[in-house]
Write a protein that binds this DNA or RNA. Structure first.
Lengths: 166, 166
DNA sequence: ACTGAAATCAGTAGTAG
DNA sequence: CTACTACTGATTTCAGT
């Protein structure tokens, strides 16, 4: 056990990719339904999904929720700059714990990080930036961009041959 | 049938929110397991989930895939500027169809859109920006930021009381 | 609106071809 | 891999509180 080599010798063939394409959008379909779509038996679909879960190609199963229905009416991208290098480890360790931070990416460029932040209101955003980022996490500067409308916001990945495929 | 009022009179109580908190991370748990966590019977959990699916609070069920395992080794944010206003509708209509574009948000600020783009290589990114964005979609200017490392990249939404809750 | 039991259906494991 | 079996366990329905 343990986390030796991450994805040792998994090879994904065209059928695996077809399964992934389906389950990343319709995880509630039965294995029979998936098999019918791609011409595979229930057992074959079952085997392949279990292997891909074991290989961590499939990391888990999630429900896709509507942000608006949960009162999360504001989406913003916040660029973060931290002047003093010694403050970066503490930021990196603590930022992921904020539920309103959906994403945090370390960047190559003018800014240290970009955050994707979901909150109910501008007041909540202001509180997050002022109290959490600047006061507690000692962020030097931020640049916030408000999203007016999301044309696409999907966790689905592009799946094509030529990736880690055979 | 039809899409009249989106979320008519759904009221989410604390138990609904507890269920959502669980299923957005562990959609594979049985209703019995969920019920045990929050002190509810299997049927009650089933009822509430079915109601939330019907009310479109839960939009669907997805598999969470590992981008690296699919050969998607590059993540970038691409800011997009379109000078001539008459070119924007065509862009907005066609951008969502690109699988490598995971997100596309219309912005308030200096840029028209921000894109979250996943590709295997820098060559694929260059091809996407030059051929697709600039040539085909007539984008005037782009500013691309490469992600070095993702500290957090989760579809999970922050769930707290005070949203659309009772 | 929840519980608990009964019925239906899906996932799993094994066999054989 | 398919096809078929049997089994386990989950989902769904339904009557009752």
């Amino acid at each position: 056990m343990g986390a030796g080599v991450p994805n040792a010798d998994q090879r994904l063939d065209a059928r695996d990719l077809a399964i992934l394409e389906l389950v990343q959008r319709n995880a509630d379909w039965s294995h029979g339904e998936i098999g019918r779509q791609i011409g595979l038996s229930v057992s074959a679909v079952n085997d392949r999904i279990r292997r891909m879960v074991a290989a961590k190609v499939i990391r888990g199963w999630t429900a896709d929720l509507d942000p608006g229905a949960l009162g999360l009416h504001l989406l913003a991208f916040v660029n973060v700059l931290i002047d003093r290098a010694e403050l970066i480890p503490a930021f990196a360790e603590r930022i992921a714990a904020y539920p309103e931070v959906q994403e945090c990416h370390h960047l190559a460029g003018d800014w240290n990080y970009i955050l994707k932040v979901r909150v109910p209101t501008t007041a909540a955003l202001e509180n997050f930036i002022s109290c959490e980022l600047k006061e507690k996490l000692k962020v030097s500067r931020t640049a916030t961009t408000i999203v007016l409308r999301s044309l696409k916001d999907s966790p689905a990945l592009p799946i094509m041959n030529g990736g880690a495929a055979r």
